[in-house]
Design a protein around this nucleic acid. Structure first.
Lengths: 222, 222
DNA sequence: CCGAGTCCTTAAGCCGTTCTTAAGCTTCGC
DNA sequence: GCGAAGCTTAAGAACGGCTTAAGGACTCGG
C-alpha cells in the first residue's frame, strides 16, 4: 500500500510514525497518546468516516494539525474537510517531497514559527547561529536567554505568563521551582535596556511592536 | 484572465478584493494599506518573483496569511513557498469552491490568533494584554478593575448588581465582606471620568452605549 | 587534573502596587 | 428629617515583581 511508502519516507525525514489502518484505531491512538504532533488522515478510511473523526477531534477542542489526503476527484470532501478544521490537504497521487514540505510547514505553523530568522520589535534572532541583535546592536545572550526571547517573539505583542515561559524553557519533564524566569528577564534587561521587555502585571512579559525608535506614528510615547 | 474570474467569485462571497498585476504593485499596495486580511499570490507574476515578495513580507515580520497559486508542475516552487512561510497553496487549475474553502480556513485560523477585543460605549478592552482605552485615551487599570470592566461590558447596557459583580470578581469560593466593588468603581471613575460608569440606584452599575453625548435631555417616557 | 570563567538555579529581602476593610460622609426618596 | 444606598477616604495587609548574591554545574585551556 501507499501507507507503507509514506511511513518509510517520513521516517527517513526523522519523524516517529504511528500507522493505524482504520478510524476506530486512530481514535484510540489519539486518545491514548496525547503527544502526537500531527495527523495524516486518508479520507478513504474504512470502519469510520475520516471526516467524522476529524469533526470529533475538533469538537473535543484538539488543535492538533490535521493533513487530509484525498482522491483527485473528491473535491467536495476536501472542501468539507477544510471547513471542519483540517489544516491542509493533499491529493492522491502526490510526490513524497511535497508531502514532506507540507508537513514541515504545518509543524512550523503550529509551533508558532520555526523560521530560522525572527524579526520583530527591534529584535533579530537567528536560531541557527543563536545570535541576537537588538536595535541594530549585536548582543551576547546565553542559551536560556535566547530561548526566552524566542518564546516571547513567537507570539509577538502578546504576553506570556511566567508559567508558560517555564514550560517552554524547561519542558514538561523537569519543572523548576524558583523565580529563574524573572532572573533571566532581569539579566536580559540589563543587556538590552529597560524597555526591551515589558512587564504586564499579573499576566507576564511581552515584547512590543514599537521599540524606542518608533518615531513614525508614535503619538503618545509614555 | 483567470484573475478576473477569481475576483468576481470572491466578491460573490462577500470579500473586498484588490487586484494588482505585478509584484512591485503588490508590494506597494501591501505597504500602503496594512489592513489586508489575506494575500493570494500567483507565482507566475511578472516584474518581481512572487517568492521573493513572500520572503520580503515574512522578513519584515508580516504574518498576514498568504495563499500561493501555482501551476501543476511547479512542485519545487510550491515546496519552496511553503518553506518561505506561505500558509497554503492551490494548484492551477482549481475549482472556485475550493479556493473559497481554503480562504475560509485560512481566515478562520488566523482569526483564532487574533486578540479578543471588547468594544462598547467608548471602551476598548484587550483581554490578552489587559489594556484598556476609553474615548481614545489609553488608561492604566489594575487587575480587579479590568475584571470589573470586563464584567460590565459583557452585558452591555444592562446593569449588574453589586452581588453579581462580587460573584464575578471573586468566584463562588471566596466571598468578600466589604464594599470593595464600590471602591473599585470609585477608583475607575477617578481614572475614566465620572460618566464612564453609571449608577442605577437599587440595581447596580451599568456602562451606557453613548458616552460622548450628554443624553440628559432625552426626557419623557422611560 | 586544576583553575578560571560562564551559565544557571535558588533563595532571601526589598519595594511599589493593589486589594480589602472600615469608618465617616453625601445623596436620594419618602 | 430619616433611613438606606451609595460615595469617599485612608490605612494596613497581601501580592507581585525586582534585585542581589551565593553556590553548583559545566566548559575550556593549561
Amino acid at each position: 500500500m501507499i501507507g507503507a511508502g509514506v511511513r518509510a519516507a517520513l521516517r527517513q525525514d526523522g519523524y516517529v510514525v504511528d500507522w493505524v489502518q482504520d478510524g476506530a484505531a486512530a481514535e484510540a491512538a489519539l486518545a491514548a497518546e496525547p503527544a502526537f504532533a500531527l495527523v495524516l488522515l486518508d479520507l478513504g478510511l474504512p470502519k469510520k468516516d475520516g471526516l467524522s473523526l476529524l469533526e470529533g477531534l475538533r469538537r473535543r477542542g484538539k488543535r492538533i494539525p490535521v493533513l487530509i489526503i484525498t482522491a483527485r476527484d473528491a473535491v467536495a470532501d476536501r472542501v468539507r474537510g477544510l471547513d471542519l478544521g483540517a489544516d491542509d490537504y493533499l491529493v492522491k497521487p502526490f510526490e513524497l517531497d511535497e508531502l514532506s514540505a507540507r508537513i514541515r510547514a504545518l509543524l512550523r505553523r503550529h509551533a508558532g514559527r520555526a523560521e530560522p530568522v525572527i524579526e520583530f520589535g527591534g529584535f533579530r534572532l537567528d536560531s541557527t547561529t543563536r545570535k541576537v541583535s537588538y536595535l541594530g546592536r549585536e548582543v551576547n545572550v546565553s542559551g536560556r536567554e535566547f530561548s526566552l526571547l524566542a518564546a516571547l517573539l513567537e507570539r509577538p505583542g502578546r504576553p506570556l505568563s511566567r508559567a508558560q515561559l517555564e514550560e517552554r524553557l524547561y519542558g514538561w519533564g523537569e519543572e523548576v521551582a524558583s523565580n529563574s524566569v524573572e532572573v533571566h528577564v532581569h539579566n536580559l534587561r540589563r543587556k538590552l535596556g529597560e524597555r526591551a521587555i515589558r512587564t504586564v502585571r499579573g499576566a507576564g512579559y511581552v515584547i512590543d511592536e514599537a521599540p524606542a525608535e518608533a518615531c513614525r506614528s508614535a503619538a503618545s510615547s509614555s
